[in-house]
């Protein structure tokens, strides 16, 4: 008995990796999609955009890179579709250097579907280095923070969308950030929400999500937490956007895998604790 407990405690962690890999691959191969109930944070995110007047200007900040695209890209895609479908005008910025290739690709795909014109309905300003300072600059004046747009290299004065934008977030009705870490939502809350009183929405990675509950609903009107938040939001937006059907089903499939993978971790934690207490009791008795 003692030997068996010691052997179990000395289990090579690679066996756990193997079990997780087999579980994920098998469940992926089965391809079962699971619909999720929508929580209040996601519903608030969706409703805040729905409640905006048509033609409102939204500052959309892409603060992520390929390492977090698995969680943030689906919610970023869905946000673009909801904004354009609701006829919002979008100013697209990024504080992470690897974000612009994603943002451009997604807008180039979605904008023609809703007959949106570049410079009138959306504009791509690209990456701005400087973290918090860059956010402060953008908040103070978008037209001063950027000299030209990122796609065509034209001065911002050439784009009609900037005629309605002033200093200190004047003319901008909402700030949305897809945040993977630093700089991200917490810095936007400090630099924009704390100074200019602009409503903020966020999509975040799982690691950052626990930090956000304290800011809801006073400083953060709604947020999409991790892959679960992305799936819930996709269900809301994707219901009448055929282009999002595939990504919605893919995310629903992923959530079923998540469920079973988490159950495995819970099982392993219980197993490890049982072995630990058995070992401790044995030592006490010896």
């Amino acid at each position: 008995m003692a030997k068996r407990t010691d052997k179990a405690l000395d289990l090579d962690r690679r066996w756990i990796f193997l079990v997780i890999a087999i579980l994920v691959v098998v469940l992926y191969a089965l391809g079962i999609a699971a619909e999720m109930p929508v929580n209040q944070y996601v519903q608030s995110y969706y409703d805040t955009i729905e409640e905006l007047d048509e033609g409102s200007i939204v500052l959309l900040s892409a603060d992520f890179d390929p390492a977090s695209a698995a969680e943030l890209l689906p919610m970023y895609q869905a946000t673009i579709y909801q904004l354009l479908k609701r006829n919002m005008r979008v100013i697209n910025v990024a504080t992470w250097p690897a974000a612009p290739p994603y943002t451009r690709e997604e807008f180039e795909k979605a904008a023609p579907l809703y007959k949106k014109k570049y410079g009138v309905d959306w504009v791509e300003l690209g990456f701005k280095p400087g973290d918090d300072v860059a956010m402060g600059q953008i908040g103070q004046s978008v037209t001063s923070a950027y000299i030209q747009d990122d796609r065509d290299g034209k001065p911002l004065a050439d784009f009609p969308i900037f005629k309605d934008v002033g200093n200190s977030f004047e003319g901008i009705s909402l700030l949305i950030t897809m945040s993977a870490g630093y700089p991200g939502i917490l810095e936007w809350i400090a630099q924009a929400g704390g100074r200019y009183d602009v409503p903020i929405l966020a999509g975040t990675t799982a690691v950052q999500t626990p930090d956000l509950f304290a800011y809801y609903p006073t400083q953060l009107k709604g947020f999409l937490g991790a892959a679960t938040g992305a799936t819930m939001y996709l269900q809301l937006v994707g219901a009448d956007v055929p282009q999002l059907e595939e990504v919605t089903i893919t995310n629903q499939k992923r959530m079923l895998i998540q469920t079973w993978a988490h159950l495995l971790i819970i099982g392993l934690i219980i197993y490890g604790n049982v072995l630990y207490f058995v070992g401790r009791r044995r030592e006490a008795n010896a």
């Binding site: 191969a29 698995a70 969680e71 690691v207 999500t209 626990p210 895998i257 988490h262 971790i265």
Partner: peptide, 23 residues
Amino acid sequence: GSMFGFTVLGRYALLIERVDTLG
């Protein structure tokens, strides 16, 4: 504990996305 739970969620999301890509 809740932070650990969310971290597991995030790490699994990355793994599943890679498996999906390979698939």
